[in-house]
Design a protein around this nucleic acid. Sequence first.
DNA 1: TATGAATGAGTTTTCATTCAT
DNA 2: GATGAATGAAAACTCATTCAT
Lengths: 214, 214, 214, 214
Amino acid sequence: MFNTKEKILQKSLELFNTKGCINTSNRAIAKEVGISIGNFYYYFKNKEEILIELFLRYLEKIFKDVINLNYEKDEIFLLKQFLLDNLEVEIEYRFIHLEMDQLVNNFPTFKKIIQEQLKKEIIMVSSLMEHQIKHGYIIPLSKEEIEFFVSNMWIVACSNFMYWNLLDFDIYEVMKKAALNKFYLIKPYLTQKSLDNENVKDLEKILKAYYENK
Amino acid sequence: MFNTKEKILQKSLELFNTKGCINTSNRAIAKEVGISIGNFYYYFKNKEEILIELFLRYLEKIFKDVINLNYEKDEIFLLKQFLLDNLEVEIEYRFIHLEMDQLVNNFPTFKKIIQEQLKKEIIMVSSLMEHQIKHGYIIPLSKEEIEFFVSNMWIVACSNFMYWNLLDFDIYEVMKKAALNKFYLIKPYLTQKSLDNENVKDLEKILKAYYENK
Amino acid sequence: MFNTKEKILQKSLELFNTKGCINTSNRAIAKEVGISIGNFYYYFKNKEEILIELFLRYLEKIFKDVINLNYEKDEIFLLKQFLLDNLEVEIEYRFIHLEMDQLVNNFPTFKKIIQEQLKKEIIMVSSLMEHQIKHGYIIPLSKEEIEFFVSNMWIVACSNFMYWNLLDFDIYEVMKKAALNKFYLIKPYLTQKSLDNENVKDLEKILKAYYENK
Amino acid sequence: MFNTKEKILQKSLELFNTKGCINTSNRAIAKEVGISIGNFYYYFKNKEEILIELFLRYLEKIFKDVINLNYEKDEIFLLKQFLLDNLEVEIEYRFIHLEMDQLVNNFPTFKKIIQEQLKKEIIMVSSLMEHQIKHGYIIPLSKEEIEFFVSNMWIVACSNFMYWNLLDFDIYEVMKKAALNKFYLIKPYLTQKSLDNENVKDLEKILKAYYENK
DNA sequence: TATGAATGAGTTTTCATTCAT
DNA sequence: GATGAATGAAAACTCATTCAT
């Protein structure tokens, strides 16, 4: 069903998430997949190629829905989707965030890709914020406030796994916590119009329930 | 003036901050200090011992002032000190945050220390928040809100260097940004009483000026 | 027009001349030709087979004219042709001389072929010399002098590319220099009869012009 | 008696001369010396460092006497020493010449050193020739003739081992042949004054005897 | 003829750690 | 306290060659 290249990517992802990308040798990946080291190098020139391939897949999954967001109209952005839907993707590719600094330091091409992606995201999220402010879903914010909200959101989305991991929560609990981390970051900025909106109204309850029941 | 052990710690810190702890070999440290590798091992059993020693020094510097905080009285916590004074210590030991996940993965004793420290900090900061709420400096918050404010604050304090580094800001700009990251995280929760307080009144202006002038 | 085997030989020659035979992997050849590595091995059992095939072609081109030399009569041997005509062939297959020692060390069958060829050439050139001496085109030389003239000529023909390459001359300059290297090696042995001969008379001028104009 | 570094250099030289530098792995050197591969790298960062160290020793031995040459006076240059004394050094370090092209291609720092050395030698030998011409030991030669005599001498000195190796002569015979190769290259240019000189008079006989008796 | 996945031994290099002096 | 030689496991990567299709 899966071909060798796919198997390498799958196992790499597993190993990266459990042992870390830096701490996973190419030999270990090959062994786990059940192929020779030579065959590993037949498919990937080096570990960075795997890393980039996995990162591109991550991006594709993350932005599959975001791209379809139509925030031209007077409409609140899909906060629920943003908080919940991406969560599983973030967990699936959690090594990316957990090792971000190391990856950036060790893989120069990956660094360039990450930097470009970050710049795009900043522009995208900033303009989304401005739109939401214009339509009264988010309280008025200065340029600086938007800049630092965006950076804080990125930082929290990137690093909250590490925090909960340190407290020995398991992966499902971490998922639930992660959504609330982001929710409480944005909550102070939501207007009454937002809080009355169907998409937001019960969100806190849903997230808590999600967090308590599962 | 400095003994050998001290020199090792100083040079290790330098190297960890520039090249990363994981990417710095013990041999490189010994060479930089100007001692033999054998002598290095006379003072430190392994790199983890250096790491822990540096981390303890970091903690001591960070909590030197915090420990003296007397938040029994009706008094706003020293936000300015918290935002600015610690900043240089954070920068001085920045490798700790930049490589947090890697360090935790590779050094089990360090991990335990970090975890214990984190639990202490959560209790400490949570009770500080409750105290501030009680005295009307911070708006009323639920248990959950406090929990996630505390976690977000830790995450942001821990990882914002990475964010600004990716955008190619230099170390001094990163310092300035870092203070604002934390300020804008707490700002929505400050009451009018806080905003009128001498310690807070001009803080935004001061931070921006700090950020723009330096 | 060209079949696959021919393409492999052509591309091998190109790669051997630019990167060296030892430094060119079979995979690189296959890739350059645009065929699979499996197909490469269909045509050639290993790199030595290519090497030998190329060497035989080189020999054929070099001795195409020499074989037709009729040096039975009282006639000076075709010095001009020897110096100029072979030059392009030598350049075309220059990797053979540049890597001679390595090739001999790594490819035992090639070594045998080279050795047999060398012995033939020694006999051939020695008897040519004796003939030229007999007819007064070359000054009388002892057995030893002939032996060492022949060896020096072979050595210079084989290795002069390396010398000029070290001095960073480009391929066309090297060609020109190579002719003069051989000319000045033989010049002291030419008799007046030689120097008056039409084939030789203006040779020095021609070679220098060739060397200066091109 | 010999320390480890010296042993590595000695064994490297042996292996380079027998199997070739390119074909000798660092692991093979370590094994031959009887040390671990780690210990090998303690002494030499890579193979190029060994190569350069050996080359510098070769140069030192070769030019030990040449440097003392005083060719200011009306005196023939020490042809006998040049032909015989250096011979053993050339043999001792024969891999350098045998693999010259490959070494130059694979070791960039070595290439630079070789190029600088070659340029120095060209100047040195050219001025020596001019001096000998001035004092009547060598027949008058044009600039071009000197240039090509110098290059031919270098090429022959560099590559004659390969020639005699191909003909399966043993190392001692090769040594003797090598002297005669150079002698017969220079012989046509010697004046009667040279040939009558004590240093030269019996040189041919000596060399032949050397070649026949040993 | 042609493909290309697969093998595995081999290469260079790094590094934490030990230990006799 | 201090030296530095020595170890050996492990990392990334290469490459000639085979073989089923």
